[in-house]
């Protein structure tokens, strides 16, 4: 279980989020939502120990993240940052192989288990056929799937993604969200992502965390979190919320 306890985050002396105590449901898909600048990415980074809390702690299995050896943590929890850098000319396979770095020792021999993890990661994102292609030759959606395969090769139990659908067109956004949902259903992976599209987030997540300018607005099941009141509190937006005719999940209609 990944949870925060009285977590205060911020840059310099200005706190962005204060005294936040959250529990990320184990084995579920969680989305972090909210307006720009409310601390969504900051929260996600803190969950992955990429930024240190000003106060409070993030706990994984009851232990503060600070107590974990960084490689041991990287084997249990993986994060895909918003804009990772692709080395020039790298192939999909070489990119995915880098996900095994936390599993390799000082001399770092390449073991069968490394090969198997990479093969499985490529299969999970359906990129086996493109494994030998340069990453740069792929479409936007395929490229994002290749990056997801990299963090899958870490074989984590918790997968954190910072805006995995930004810069993708609608079809590829849905493709990525379906992939994350399937990874959760098939492998029991706990998925936490920062998303922008509220209706898509509601449709593909089990649990939402809605942040506003003054911190946490609501958390829980999508139908409980997305209401006209919470949307107004978080975004200052007047909107209607109706059930999605296909899935029955809440759909936000600005008015």
């Amino acid at each position: 279980m990944l949870e925060t306890r009285d977590l205060t985050l911020g840059y310099d002396r200005r706190p962005v989020l204060e005294r936040l105590s959250l529990q990320i449901p184990e084995g579920r898909v969680t989305a972090i939502l909210g307006p720009n600048g409310c601390g969504k990415s900051t929260l996600l980074k803190a969950l992955a120990r990429l930024s240190a809390p000003q106060a409070g702690a993030v706990l994984l299995a009851g232990e503060p993240l600070g107590q974990y050896d960084s490689r041991a943590l990287a084997r249990r929890l993986a994060i895909l940052p918003q804009s990772p850098v692709a080395p020039e000319g790298i192939t999909v396979r070489d990119l995915v192989r880098r996900g095994r770095i936390p599993w390799r020792g000082l001399l770092g021999p390449w073991r069968d288990s490394d090969e198997a993890a990479c093969r499985e990661a490529l299969a999970a994102v359906a990129l086996e056929d493109l494994a030998t292609r340069p990453l740069a030759a792929l479409s936007g959606g395929q490229r994002q799937r290749a990056w997801i395969a990299l963090v899958l090769a870490q074989t984590p139990r918790h997968l954190l993604l910072d805006e995995p659908t930004t810069f993708l067109d609608l079809v590829h956004q849905i493709e990525v969200l379906r992939l994350l949902q399937r990874l959760n259903r098939d492998r029991g992976l706990t998925v936490v992502s920062v998303l922008h599209d509220l209706s898509l987030a509601a449709r593909f997540s089990d649990h939402l965390i809605l942040l506003g300018p003054d911190g946490l607005v609501a958390e829980g099941a999508p139908s409980a979190v997305l209401t006209p009141d919470t949307l107004h509190a978080a975004f200052g937006l007047s909107a209607l919320v109706h059930p999605d005719p296909v899935s029955g999940t809440p759909m936000v209609i600005p008015c």
Partner: peptide
């Protein structure tokens, strides 16, 4: 040569390098 895997991680950007357990 010993640093090679960590250099590979670093070349993916600082955030992902740390996510992969390197300093």
């Amino acid at each position: 040569l010993l640093l090679a895997p960590r250099l590979e991680a670093l070349s993916l950007g600082g955030a992902l390098a740390r996510g992969l357990g390197t300093h």
